[in-house]
Each structure stands twice: as C-alpha cells, then as structure tokens.
Design a protein around this nucleic acid. Structure first.
Length: 775
DNA sequence: CAGTGAGCGAGCTTCCGCTTGACTT
C-alpha cells in the first residue's frame, strides 16, 4: 500500500524514467488516451449542453484493467502525462476512470527527460488544470460535430463513405487550389543572356569568367539585335564589390522539419520517417519524435558543446537556444535530438543509421558558429549598350556549422551554378568575350505539393499536430481525394542564339518540362467534394478556421470562457448550414459537357460514376437506348479533359480477331495496355507495342510468349484438384488454390508436396492478402 | 491485378489526437 505508481503516456518513456526514479517507484504507461467519445450514436448529447459520452477505447480495455489494479495497490499515484492540452485531458480521464483518491493522487509535469527535471517535478506536484481539460473537451467535441455532421451530407449528395473534417478537408483544399493555379498558369518565355569572358590569371593561363546580363529580352528579335551589337562591342570591368555575409544554422528538428529534411535528403515518405524515428526512440537513441518544440535541455546543450569542442575546436562552438515560430505550438517535449549527443552513429538498419545521422548532424550544427562568407559581384560594361553583365561568386571565409550540415530547400532550381570562385580581375580591365548566348527560358508553374511540403504548409497554418501529420497524409490518399504519383513531363522546344567567332547562330533545342516525382495530385472526387464543401461550408473550409478555434480554446484554458458555451455559439450557425446543404443542393457528380461526337452528333460528357470518373456518349432515352461508357485514364481529370481525348477513350477495347476459336481483344487497364484472350491477360510491351495499331499476329506472339513463361513457373499440378497449383513466384514457391495464394511453411520442399500436404497448408493458413494493403 | 456505369434497398460509412502493436509482400 505504500508504493509509488507513476503513469506516463509512452512505454519507452516509462522505461527511462523508471531508471532515474529507482525501485521505490513503479513506472507504467497509459499508451495515450484511454477514453474517447462513443463512436455510435454521435457520442455527444447535443441537447444537454453537448455532454460528452466517453467510453473506454476497445484497444485500451486491458491497459485500463491493469492500471486499476496497480493504482489500488499504490500508496501514491503520480500522473505524469504530457504538459499540453491533450496530456492534461489524459490525466483527467485517468483520474476519472481509475477513480483515484484525490488525497493520494499527484499531477506532475516535465518537458525534458533528465534526472534533474524529473526530481524537480516530483518535488512540485500540482492539481489537474480543469480549464485546460475543458479546452481539450471543446476541441474533441467540435471535431466530432464537424466530422460527423458534414460527412453524412457528402454520403447523400456525392458518394457513400466519404469523409470531411476540420483538418483533412482543408488539406485537400490546399492541393486542389494549387492544381487549379497550375491549370490556369500561362507560361511566359524570355531570353536570358550569359557570357563567357576570357581572363589571363597570375600564372599566365587563361581562365573563364561567366556572367549574366542584368536584362532579359522578351522576343527572339530583341535578343538577336543585342547579340549583333555585341559583335562589335568592347567589354570592360566597371566595378568589383565584395561584401561579407553570414549564415546561421537551422534550429534542431521538430516533427515537421524532420519529415521535410528526411524527404529531401533521404527520400523518405512522412510515414516512413515516423516509423524509423519510432524505432530509434524505442531503442533509446533519440528523444521523442512527435514534438513541435525546438528547445534543447541544458544537459543537451552542454554535451553538444563539449562534443563540438573536441571535434572542431573552440572557434566552432556557439551555444544557442531557439524559439518556436509555428502557430499553436504546445511544446510539451524537447526538440528531436540524439539521447546521447556524443554518440555519432548507431547500430541498426540502414534507414535507422541514416536518419540518426541526419538528426545528429542537425543537432550539432544548431550549436555551432555562423558560417562567414564573402560575396563578390563583378560588373562588366558594354561599350555600345547600356546593359551590364554581372558575375557573382561566393567564398567561404569560415565554414562554421557548414562543416557538418547544410539545410536543403524545396526549390530545385537553386542548387545551381554561379556560386563558384571568381578569377581575380581589376577595374577597367578589358575582357575578351569567348561566347555570348541568349537562351529562351520559361517561367515556372507553381510547384505541386510533396507530402513533406504539405506538412510544412499545414504547420505554418497551425492545422494538425505532430502526431497527426503522417496520418492526415494517408487519410486523404485512402479516401481517394488525393493521389501521390509520378507524371512524365512534356517535350517542348526552345531557341538558343549563340555569338561566337563573330557570328550569331541559332539552334532550336528540346527539353523535358514539368515532369513530377512523388507529388500530390487531386483526384476528380477530391475536386468535386472540395467544391461542394467550399460552397456550403465556407466557414469550416477557411484556412484560418483552426486558428480562430485555437483562440477560443485558449480562452477556455485561461478560464475566461465556459467550454460548452463556446461550442453552443459555433453550433447554431453551423447546424443551419448542414440543414440548408441537405435541402438545397442537388446531388453532385462533377458533370461537364465537352461537346458533340462528330460521328453521331450525340453529346459527349464526363462525370463521376459509381466506379470512378467516366466519359459518356449519348444519354439514356425512353426507348431503351443506352449511352456508351469509358473510364478516364490515370492522369486525366474531368476539369481539363478535352473532347478529342475523351473520344480517343472509345477506340478501345479493340477486337483483333480470333485465336484458337476465342476472341482476342486489346485494351488499356490499370496497369497499362493489355491483350485479353480466353480470360488470360497479357501486357503489351512498353515502348514497343501500341494498343491502337497492334495486330493479331503480334498479339498471338505475345500470348505464346506468356504461356511459355507461365509453364516455367509451374512446379506441380494435381489431376484430382485442377484448381490447385504449386507455382514459382517472385518470392519463391507458393500455393495457388481457387484464385487465392498461400505461403509455404519454412523448409518445405515444393517438388515433393502431395495433394494432402497442400490441402493441409490451405486449411491451416490464412491466404496471403491480395491487392492494395490498407493501413 | 485488368470487365462494371442500376433506382427492391438492410445497415453501414465519418472526425482529431494521444499512443503502440501485428501484420506482410
């Protein structure tokens, strides 16, 4: 009865704290929230001042039972959940659910896991802050109301099973609006002029000085006239300016910046980053990975300092404490840093090592001196023209933090040339132009979001929390609002004029523009749902909605307002908008008329159908006439598809003829063009075959080739069970039975399997999952 | 793996934030 029980949120944290506190304390964890609003029946009694109906989360039943038992046996229960809104609520739910005696219950908080911080916390317990708890209840209730009242409107007016929410709907809006900016973007071209001058250096060799003209020409003619002028011009150095600059290191990682840098530098998806970080955290190698704080403990500052001292010397040390800029940060934890900063690397998988290395370098760099640079601008004047050429060079005088870490940017263009060392020249020196080039360049469309740049944007707007950035991104993809994919660019031509050896020549070159890799694209359903929500729920869809809610939540937390009154005030007008959306709006399917089919004169339209976006020729009529349908291909969207593209879709499937008395057809499916014969599918060869022109003999060739390949994959069949086959697949031998696949137990010799063995395997094992995995 | 494109209509879908598992292909 006299022991101490400490409850924290995460088991890994429990483990470390247990070590600090010693054997008088038992440290255990609640695994986050233990209760939530009931999922059925709305979970809120709206008429009774929005009274929440909490139930123990199904996956927490066992934990709660264990906690109850432990709490009963303990002399004192120390609730040490995080010091933020959610953490305070967890503390309160624990107190309620475990029916803790106030006399023997103490609430403690610390935001760094060091011995000092924890002992300090134990010495300074405080009561549970009910205002903060109420702010959380308001947040929770509001999110439930928004999600569970708006989603059903979508089921009725757009499509079943769709979802809307305070966070996800705004995330989709960002992507949809960016796409529209791109669609309406008009690319402009201008001629950029660059010159290569030849300069003798100290040793008598000739070196190049590359410079850019400070003016662009709108047309080819202007650029041409300029180059013609240059033919007879003289070039002299007009000015040399040298200016010192400094660069400072970036702050230590938060969840959001870690996700961004891991994406740019390591190519990780945001969820990949989080699961690798989770393993590092569980292994005690880094501090907590879901944080919005850039704060480092004084212990961390000290170890970083001595580490830098021993590695690079005193000049490289500069202790810094950073301040959070992001909206709505709650800073319950430290920044993400190595637990033991003197440890430069860790054991583990390649991914763990790389992510750790990134975290280590960023942490160390944040405590290092500024880099000192010198930027030199050389200006070259032209004897017969007012324009100027400029060359910019940068020299690092002192590398400082750049020795260990350079932050990346999303701007792909920036990592270019021009920052090189410049040759030494003097004012009034005459230069000889080796060549001058005018190149047509196009303005860039706004960039599409990557997972990580979307997280950055959300964080800037104060939307979502560190624990939800990764789930948000998967949710909007799972709902089909957004798709992450690569898209090929398009070839475009540009003009290049070159002045060399006193002659101006012209070349037309081609480049690939607008190729995208792992970018977020809105789908048709995403765009239709977004437009619907923006139309009927303007307030919720406003980018500042969350920020405004936060102001109210802060007032509740400060005890200035009552939480259910705040909700009441919101609910009045919100619920009216639900009712009017239900009544007023038509069912919406994004229908768009493209024009007439020239062959039949019937209307051609595109819309969202039961199985996704489709094109349609003609309408259903009374006399039983049915329209023709065709699915849109990936990359085509209702908003931008043209009549020509839509008509093209109806050219497939094509019948090629018969082979072995069965029809041979060609079509394009989810995985590209294919031939279908006797219910067998054979892919066309990429880059070789064209579905619109491929003929029967080529199709037969491909069918035969596929048969040949399949027969090699076949290990055994049984006459008694024609549907059972032992096959050799990509991951070794496996069983196929009634269109389901089964893994062989380890050590099985596939060649020696009997029919009974196989049936036993089928019965005892669950089939390997097919198709897309859902998380 | 790849097709489909309606009016019998049961019962279901859905939110955001805390946490970690048990699964593979």
């Amino acid at each position: 009865m006299s022991g101490n029980l400490v409850i924290v949120e995460s088991p890994a944290k429990a483990k470390t704290i247990g070590k600090f506190l010693g054997k008088d304390f038992t440290v255990t964890s609640s695994m986050g929230h233990i209760r939530d609003l009931e999922k059925k029946n709305f979970g809120i009694d709206i008429r009774n001042h929005f009274a929440p109906n909490y139930v123990i989360s199904p996956d927490k039943k066992k934990i709660v039972a264990d906690l109850k038992k432990q709490a009963k046996d303990a002399g004192t229960v120390w609730i040490a959940s995080d010091e933020d809104r959610e953490g305070e609520a967890i503390a309160w739910h624990l107190k309620e659910v475990l029916k803790l005696d106030p006399e023997k219950t103490k609430r403690i908080v610390f935001h760094e896991i060091t011995k000092d911080a924890i002992f300090n916390a134990v010495k300074n317990p405080r009561p549970i802050d009910i205002n903060l708890v109420n702010a959380q209840q308001a947040r929770r209730v509001l999110d439930r109301i928004v999600g569970f009242e708006v989603s059903p409107v979508l089921w009725k007016k757009v499509k079943p099973s769709l979802s809307a929410g305070r966070v996800q709907s705004v995330a989709v809006r960002l992507i949809v609006e960016r796409e529209r900016e791109i669609i309406s973007f008009q690319s402009q071209s201008a001629f950029r002029v660059s010159a290569v001058f030849l300069v003798p250096d100290a040793g008598g060799n000739v070196v190049e000085l590359k410079a850019e003209l400070n003016k662009r020409f709108e047309t080819r003619e202007e650029a041409f006239r300029f180059l013609e002028k240059c033919r007879s011009a003289g070039f002299t150095i007009a000015d040399i300016v040298t200016r010192p600059t400094r660069r400072s290191p970036a702050a230590p990682f938060t969840t959001s910046t870690l996700q961004q840098e891991a994406s740019r530098k390591l190519g990780f998806s945001v969820s990949q980053t989080m699961s690798v970080a989770q393993r590092l955290y569980e292994g005690g190698k880094i501090t907590y990975m879901r944080t919005d704080s850039v704060n480092l403990s004084s212990l961390a500052l000290n170890t970083a300092k001595s580490k830098i001292l021993s590695l690079h010397g005193e000049r490289y040390v500069k202790t810094r404490q950073y301040k959070t800029k992001s909206k709505g940060a709650q800073e319950a934890h430290e920044a993400i840093r190595p637990t033991y900063i003197d440890q430069e690397e860790v054991s583990g998988t390649a991914q763990e090592k790389r992510l750790y290395d990134l975290i280590w370098k960023r942490t160390i760099a944040s405590q290092m001196a500024d880099a000192e640079l010198e930027r030199t601008t050389i200006t070259v004047k032209i004897s017969n023209s007012p324009e100027l050429f400029q060359a910019v060079g940068e020299v690092i005088r002192f590398d400082g933090f750049l020795k260990v870490y350079i932050e990346s940017t999303d701007n792909e263009e920036e990592n270019g040339d021009s920052k090189a060392l410049l040759p030494s020249v003097t004012v009034n020196q005459e230069l000889r132009a080796e060549s001058i080039q005018a190149t047509e360049r196009f303005t860039q469309k706004p960039p599409r979001y990557t997972e990580a740049s979307l997280v950055k944007k959300l964080e800037e707007q104060g939307i979502g929390r560190p624990s939800t950035y990764a789930p948000i991104i998967t949710t909007i993809q799972n709902r089909g609002y957004v798709i992450k994919e690569d898209r090929p660019g398009v070839e475009r031509t540009y003009v290049q004029l070159t002045l060399k050896n006193e002659k101006v020549t012209e070349k037309v070159k081609t480049e690939n523009a607008g190729a995208e890799k792992s970018k977020l694209f809105p789908t048709d359903i995403g765009m239709v749902v977004n437009d619907f929500l923006v139309k009927y729920f303007k307030k919720i869809m406003d980018y500042n909605f969350t920020a405004r809610v936060e102001v109210n939540l802060d007032e509740i937390a400060d005890g200035k307002r009552i939480w259910n009154e705040v909700i009441e005030e919101f609910y009045g007008s919100f619920h009216k908008s639900i009712e009017s959306a239900m009544e007023v709006s038509e069912r919406t399917n994004g229908e768009r008329h493209l024009g007439e089919d020239p062959a039949t004169g019937k209307p051609v339209l595109v819309k969202i159908g039961r199985f996704g976006p489709l094109a349609q020729i003609g309408e259903s009529t009374e006399d039983g006439e049915k329209p023709q349908f065709a699915s849109l291909r990936s990359g085509q969207i209702i908003e931008t598809i043209t009549l020509e593209d839509a008509l093209e879709l109806f050219k497939l499937p094509r019948e090629l003829g018969e082979y072995e008395n069965k029809k041979v057809t060609v079509a394009i499916g989810r995985f590209g063009p294919y031939i279908r014969h006797n219910n067998q599918f054979v892919s066309l060869q990429k880059g070789v075959d064209d579905p619109y022109s491929v003929d029967l003999s080529r199709a037969v060739e491909l069918i035969e080739a596929k048969r040949e390949k399949d027969s090699k994959a076949l290990i055994r069949t049984f006459d008694e069970e024609p549907e059972l086959r032992v096959l050799n697949g990509r991951w070794g031998p496996y069983l196929s039975y009634k269109k389901k696949n089964f893994k062989l137990p380890k050590g099985t010799k596939a060649e020696e399997l009997t029919l009974d063995d196989c049936l036993k395997i089928v019965q005892e094992s669950t089939p390997a999952k097919k198709g897309k995995r859902k998380t």
